[in-house]
Design a protein around this nucleic acid. Structure first.
Length: 499
RNA sequence: GGCGACGUGGCCGAGUGGCUAGGCACGGGUCUGCAAAACCCUCUACAGCGGUUCGAAUCCGCUCGUCGCCUCCA
């Protein structure tokens, strides 16, 4: 098995992963704040995490994968010490969609469910545990108590702060070490005159008006954002674990603060390797609501009837796979269409292979196995080289071509090898198959689907009677209704047209 | 002001000193009643300028351009 090499943000170089416990990867990846539907940028990051997991699995490692749900509202604008800032949950609650919810707890629950559903649609590996911040209050409070006791934190009338000067290695990850530079920053820093250093960050906010509040030794309030990840990661993975991931924006301040808290708490290294996913842009620009290029997964994947674009979620997965996680990626609708085409091609080829396997065709000879194994090894190798998905896909396409080109002369022995290849590649890259049915990938009602399928059968009937005019007329009709009609050995098939 | 990333053919994107990915689109072909799908072939690029080198997309310098973070956004 090849070494697994990743770019480590902490050391700024590619490194071979040396596991703390050989054969067992412990991995934490920062999850979303559930105040709305997740967008494709979020999922690019979660996809990177998924690839770390899948590659590790392919190497035969056991993986303990933890990714959290941030269901605590944290302050949005620069929260002033009086905590007048409004948090994301509260803001979402007041929005138009928020009217659907009785309170912030309901809102968080709803978007958590939606998030997990999209997670599954994109065929992302299920984590070992998906801890929620609100369910780990005791751990957070205990951590703060310890930090105060050891002189790493102090209480003011408004909050409990982590004392950055008490932790020497602060800035190691982001390079942001200078307190004065932070003060001069474009944005305001938390302005609490009781703060001892401008870099100090809140571990606990005192606020008895907050929509979500808990009782603590410092009165009613809520925990600082960074704390939940430290506490939950250590709870499920131990004081030191192997890899920690997240979006590039989280490197500072979030991850920097996580390191400071955790290592101040334990005196041990927190995570050995840090993996950060670059942001994606959409149509060459920063994704933003005002530019009209802001895509939630839901927007792309939901049926037309529900206001979505009706794309196969696996096409979105493949599209995101087509760029390297460590580089900015320019997501375009064209790219998504391209991906949809490729996903379908793989699915069709696999279907045909399975068809041969379950037919009464002769065994034939295995003329594929060796080449396909070599091909798979090349795909895996690309993935172990800092998750080089573009390279892995290029290799996979070559393998797919090998199979596609051999289909006509393929017996069961060769089909067995092809099927194995599809399974392995799908286990690693995950874009080839989920159960695929017309209803699932299409934006039609069941009735429409039934009609389309019936019409497709009529085409076959007409063609068998050489009534081509009639066959063409039916096909034209289906095309106009937004279906694509393809002739196969089993007869005409209708699928929703990609666009 | 501080920290960092990137500029590759019509588009998306790998590649970090020589052997010049891949996808999509375009064009040509095979197949097909005709299409679609599939398959085959085709398309030779590295922001600009200068330098190092036998040789640079790849190393160095400068210029231009784009982007991210800098207290709670993946």
């Amino acid at each position: 098995m090849p070494d697994f090499i990743l770019y480590n943000s902490l050391t700024r170089e590619e490194q071979t992963i040396q596991l703390i416990q050989p054969g067992h990867l412990r991995f934490y990846s920062c999850g979303p704040t559930v105040y709305s539907y997740a967008h494709i940028g979020n999922f690019r990051t979660f996809l990177t995490a998924d690839l770390v997991v899948r590659t590790a699995e392919a190497l035969g490692w056991q993986v303990t994968y933890v990714t959290n749900i941030t269901d605590v509202g944290h302050l949005t604008d620069d929260d002033h010490a009086d905590a007048l800032g409004e948090d994301k949950m509260a803001k979402a609650l007041r929005s138009k969609e928020g009217e659907l919810f009785a309170n912030v707890w309901d809102l968080a629950r709803f978007y958590t469910d939606a998030f997990v559903e999209e997670w599954e649609q994109l065929n992302l590996r299920k984590p070992f545990v998906r801890p929620r911040a609100t369910e780990h209050m005791r751990e957070q409070i205990e951590a703060i108590q310890t930090l105060i006791k050891t002189g790493h934190a102090y209480e003011t009338p408004d909050a409990v702060y982590f004392s950055v000067p008490s932790f020497k290695a602060y800035g190691q990850l982001s390079g942001n070490t200078r307190a004065d530079a932070l003060e001069e920053g474009v944005r305001d820093v938390v302005k609490d005159t009781n703060k001892q250093d401008p870099r100090d960050f809140a571990l606990w906010k005192k606020d008895d008006k907050h929509l979500m509040q808990w009782f603590s030794p410092w009165g009613w309030g809520f925990p600082g954002w960074h704390l939940e990840c430290s506490v939950m990661a250590m709870k499920y993975l131990g004081e030191t674990f192997d890899i920690h991931g997240g979006g590039e924006d989280l490197a500072f301040p979030h991850h920097e603060c996580e390191i400071a808290q955790s290592e101040a708490l334990t005196g041990k290294p927190f995570a050995n390797y840090w993996v950060h996913t670059r942001f994606l842009q959409v149509e060459g620009q920063k994704m933003s609501k005002s530019l009209g290029n802001f895509y939630r997964v839901k927007d792309l994947v939901a049926p037309n009837a529900e206001g979505g674009k009706g794309f196969d979620p696996l096409a979105l997965r493949l599209s995101l796979l087509s760029g390297h996680y460590g580089k900015p990626f320019n997501f375009t609708i064209q790219n998504l269409k391209d991906a949809a085409k490729i996903v379908r091609r793989y699915q069709d080829a696999w279907d045909l292979v399975e068809g041969i396997l379950h037919s009464d065709k002769p065994s034939g000879t295995d003329f594929l196995g060796k080449r396909l194994n070599e091909n798979y090894d090349a795909i895996l190798l690309a993935m172990t080289q800092n998750l080089n998905t573009p390279e892995a896909l290029a290799k996979a396409h070559a393998g797919q071509k090998m199979i596609q080109g051999a289909l006509s002369g393929m017996g069961k022995e060769a089909a067995k090898q092809a099927s194995k290849w599809f399974q392995k590649v799908n286990a690693l890259l995950g874009f080839i198959r989920r159960e695929r049915t017309l209803q699932e990938t299409n934006d039609t009602t069941d009735a429409e689907v039934e009609v389309a399928q019936a019409l497709a059968q009529l085409i076959d009937t007409a063609r068998s009677q050489k009534d081509f005019a009639r066959a063409d007329a039916i096909r034209t009709d289906l095309l106009q209704k937004g279906f694509e009609v393809r002739t196969t050995k089993e007869g005409s098939k209708v699928t929703k047209k990609i666009s």
